[in-house]
């Protein structure tokens, strides 16, 4: 009988470590290279000449960048508030009730934006606003984008909040009622504080999804409603300078920071 030196590691599978490290490399190498070249002092995107913050200066000084950043923040913040508030209410209204006939339908409606390919949502929203503008003469300007973003942010905000409510120990709310808390007080003092991490991560997801959106924004946006992703898209079609790397890096950093913060909140509360 063969004898082995160390006991069998039952969890080990040969080669899996290599694949995992390879995936990590593949996922990060392109973005890291993109980021590194944002510090290139030369004006050719792929030719390294030296370290400088020159292109960040150029990017930030650009008026178009300013207005794109402003639009992006207005849309993302408003859509985040709208979607988080409605998603929180919906999550409570769909977990703290006796099951009723429309529950499954409501659940499917709220999650619909996740199931429809983004390009379809984009052209559908475009058609909708075109029709509203054509037949009713209503054009909300940037409001159109806020509405479109709120719709697809709702399921992203909804998921973590609902998950948190479902994981919550129902006896805690019963204990509050047992200790003379009215339903409102039980919600205010027990359910809501325990729901905060879920709401925060819902907010973070909604914000990122809106902040990063390109497809829907590109089709729905009217003239002068450029957001940061659209601004980058416009830059790609011109002769490229490391300015585009600098703007891309800024966008990536926003995503990374928001993800990291929501990750830390989730971990601290666990």
């Amino acid at each position: 009988m063969a004898k082995t030196r160390a006991p069998l590691d039952t969890k080990e599978q040969p080669g899996f470590r290599g694949v995992a490290l390879f995936c990590l490399f593949v996922l990060y190498a392109p973005i890291l290279i993109l980021m590194i070249f944002s510090f290139n002092s030369g004006s050719i995107v792929t030719h390294w000449e030296g370290v400088s913050l020159h292109w960040y200066g150029t990017a930030i000084a650009n008026d178009d960048f300013h207005s794109a950043a402003k639009n992006t923040m207005i849309i993302a913040i408003t859509a985040t508030i709208v979607s988080t508030v409605t998603a929180t209410l919906a999550a409570i209204g769909m977990t703290r009730v006796k099951p009723w006939k429309g529950l499954m339908t409501a659940f499917m409606v709220i999650n619909l934006p996740l199931m429809v390919p983004e390009i379809v949502t984009a052209i559908a929203t475009l058609s909708f606003f075109a029709l509203v503008a054509g037949k009713l003469g209503i054009n909300l300007g940037i409001g159109n984008l806020i509405i479109a973003h709120s719709v697809f942010c709702i399921p992203f905000a909804y998921m973590p909040i609902r998950a948190r409510l479902e994981d919550m120990d129902l006896t805690l709310e019963q204990a509050a009622a047992d200790l003379y808390a009215t339903p409102w007080h039980a919600f205010r003092r027990v359910t809501l504080p325990l729901l905060v991490p879920g709401i925060l991560s819902g907010m973070a997801l909604a914000f990122i999804v809106s902040f990063d959106d390109f497809t829907i924004t590109q089709l729905v946006a009217g003239p002068g409603q450029t957001t940061l992703p659209l601004y980058i898209w416009n830059q790609i079609r011109r002769p490229m300078t490391p300015e585009i790397n600098a703007i891309s890096t800024i966008l990536l950093m926003v995503s990374i920071i928001v993800v990291a913060i929501s990750f830390l909140i989730a971990r601290k509360r666990r």
Partner: peptide
């Protein structure tokens, strides 16, 4: 649940 459902 109605505000979210109505918006979507």
């Amino acid at each position: 649940a109605s505000p979210a459902v109505l918006i979507v």
